[in-house]
Design a protein around this nucleic acid. Sequence first.
RNA 1: UGGCGAGUAGUUCAAGUGGCAGAACGCCUGGCUUUGGACCAGGAGGUUGCAGGUUCGAGUCCUGCCUCGCCAGCCA
Length: 567
Amino acid sequence: MSSAGSPQGDEPGERGDFIRNLIRQNLADGTFGGRVQTRFPPEPNGFLHIGHAKSICLNFDLAAEFGGTCNLRFDDTNPETERADYAAAIEEDVRWLGYRSDRGALYASDYFDQLYRWAEDLIRAGLAYVDDQDAEAISENRGSFTEPGADSPWRNRTPEENLDLFRRMRAGEFADGERVLRARIDMAHENMLMRDPVLYRIRHRVHHRTGDQWCIYPTYDWAHGQSDAAEGVTNSICTLEFDAHRPLYDWFLDHLDLLGDRPRQTEFARLNITHSVLSKRRLLQLVEEGHVDGWDDPRMPTLRGLRRRGFPPKAIREFCRHIGVARVDGTVEVELLESFARRELNQTAVRRMAVLNPLRLVIENYPEGQVEMREADNNPEDPSAGARKAPFSRELYIERDDFMLDPPAKFYRLSPGREVRLRSGYFVTCTGVETDADGNVAEVRCTYDPETGSGQAPDGRKVRATIHWVSAAHAGEGRAVLYERLFADPHPGADGADPMESLNSDSARLIGNARFEPAMADIAPGQVVQFERLGYFARDPDTPDLFHRTVGLRDEWARIQKRQSAR
RNA sequence: UGGCGAGUAGUUCAAGUGGCAGAACGCCUGGCUUUGGACCAGGAGGUUGCAGGUUCGAGUCCUGCCUCGCCAGCCA
């Protein structure tokens, strides 16, 4: 079955994206002895977002599809920015997304000893040297895109001298920035990254795992490939900006004494989403400037934000599989993510009636004081979800939007003289309204047809609309937040603009006086429920009376209104 | 300015190694329905960045050009 456009297939021999094709080819020619091992390597210096999810899903799915393994490995080579609590949060988020690292959490810092030994090997081979130049001088002597760099005056030190100096660096004899260890490659190389890259820098800093054991720390380039090799990674998958690092990645591994195969780096395009930003810097700015309530604000594209918002992990996984991988930068429409949330939630979320903007409805011919329990399916898509009972009485609340005194064309809901169905209740016909001093509709009057309790009229007459309701005397009260796009512009910051300029000032609208049917009490903290006809809402984990709108239902009437007003 | 990477419906991706340019989301029509939801059926939407060339035949191969992204941290 599926091939084009649905890369989630795991049938061998099926065509797919360039990464899967590569792995299949490796498998066929025995490159890694039939092994497939990947890794997800975040730096523990912030929270994971939907862009990371793409990488997580790719790496773990690849391993699962080809019978391999995938590890979570923290790239913790820079003690200045990293923290243990970030690492813990990342582990939690990966688990929440639905993946388990095959060997628990691994750390680049676990390889500091091995990395150090490899560095000494390189020095002994005359391929690395200690440079006394400061950062500014190194930068100046690197040259430019069009001009070659200049050799450091310390480039030709003997291996003995380099070894001595490097050991003294490690022993703490020098201050931060006083010396670095550099690879001895080619200061005129057309790839700037090959112009004697820095391997170690001095940082007298406490590391969140190794404490004060080290005062020299490996750079990303020196640590990454070797960490991959150390743990047996076959396919090291990273984003496009590391493309230029690949020759370096290979150079190091080619000049070291490895136990196993040389891992292979492959790059793919990172994810962008419309009406959002994903750079760490912008996300941090949103939090620090108070545009959102924190890293787990439901408007944030962080996994914690999406979780609080009610996005099911499965929907995120399916989304990531659907968008596939390529080497072209692009921006996915946020509507696609939402459509995956709807698809999943439609199958799994229980239904409840909630009225967000209450309008009193009085049924004139329904006996005062009478209450009957109406049965309603928990989920029409899933009979095994059972049913609940909702109290029905003479005075109800309906949605203010479901009534119009003077209805325009194509408005099928309640209006004077018109009959509609109350969901899981009876047919009612509007007989009139009560208005307040300002002439606003304060209450709608109607009569009900006791013969329509089955949902159908015995005489076969039809109604065009079914609306939701709650019994006024039995309703619970609560609050709901309606979210819109955080950024009004689909591409915030495009053409050099400041993304913050397009912040949507109305991205969170609080509804303070929503009314719920009593069975809303069954909804657990964090659980997502469908408010019938309105959308999916997640009960806040900490504030039980608060619901976050995950995503609305498709709204045909809203679309008609939009079209009419556009005319 | 040098190097590398990339250009296929609005968007994201497909289209063994030259053989009828497709899917999903979005949009439009219709059907069905106790959610104007879901579901079902259909439709619109393409000069495959541009210009040449090779070939019976080019999204795919060749040449030139254009546009976009990344690279001059002791960040990752």
